[in-house]
Design a protein around this nucleic acid. Structure first.
Length: 196
DNA sequence: TCCCCGATTAACT
DNA sequence: GTTAATCGGGGAG
């Protein structure tokens, strides 16, 4: 049911904050692993070249080049040499803004997620960007692909989450511009997200 | 070239 | 509470 027929593919907005609001409550659906899906409950905005905390702050490198592409491009990076984290690039093109996918509520394909994550606890399965990326089977080579058939993962949503259902708080795990309230948590999904 | 640090997680004490 | 795992970017030398 996660990837319902009525669900529409997400057109990623140019504005990263609009994109963050659109992504909250949207379903991440795997096209590689039939029936693997999750509802996004926590995302984080990075303002590209205007943002000291962004990997793109000092301009493009081989790693960060995908962030300078069009909205809907995916940027995957290796964190602490171990984990992978997934971002959805927003706009405008060349500014390298992106939204980090931080947490989601498992919907379908939970057994496969548990196998990949080697973890049983459903409430922790997709809680954290590294866990989310691993459960969806991402690899570093996925960086630069586009959402949809190119990546093999798509985003779909039925209803827009209201402003009153979103809590904005400080970003996590960074030291530069750490106070900015760029992390968005969907309140009904608080169990699957970090506290704002 | 070397060294330090990070958009993290899990396994410790 | 602390710490190890491990890789790329960036600044110092």
């Amino acid at each position: 049911m996660g990837a319902s027929i009525e669900a529409k593919p997400v057109q990623v907005p140019e504005d990263p904050f609009e994109a963050a609001k659109l992504l909250l409550g949207a379903e991440l659906v795997s096209l590689r692993d039939a029936g693997l899906s999750a509802r996004l409950v926590e995302v984080e905005v990075y303002l590209g070249q205007d943002d000291p905390a962004s990997h793109a702050f000092r301009g493009p490198t081989r790693r960060t080049l995908p962030m300078f592409g069009p909205p809907g491009t995916v940027y995957v990076y290796r964190s602490y040499g171990i984990h992978l984290c997934m971002n959805v690039v927003t706009g405008p093109v060349g500014k390298a803004s992106a939204v980090l996918l931080r947490a989601a509520q498992p919907l379908e394909g939970i057994d496969l997620m548990r196998t990949r994550r080697k973890l049983q606890d459903k409430s922790l399965l997709l809680k954290g960007p590294g866990r989310l990326a691993q459960a969806f089977g991402l690899s570093i080579d996925d960086s630069g692909k586009s959402l949809g058939t190119d990546l093999g993962i798509s985003l779909a949503h039925k209803d827009t989450v209201g402003e009153a259902e979103i809590a904005w708080g400080p970003r996590i795990g960074i030291s530069k511009a750490a106070e900015e309230p760029y992390r968005a948590v969907w309140l009904p999904g608080i169990k699957w997200a970090s506290r704002p």
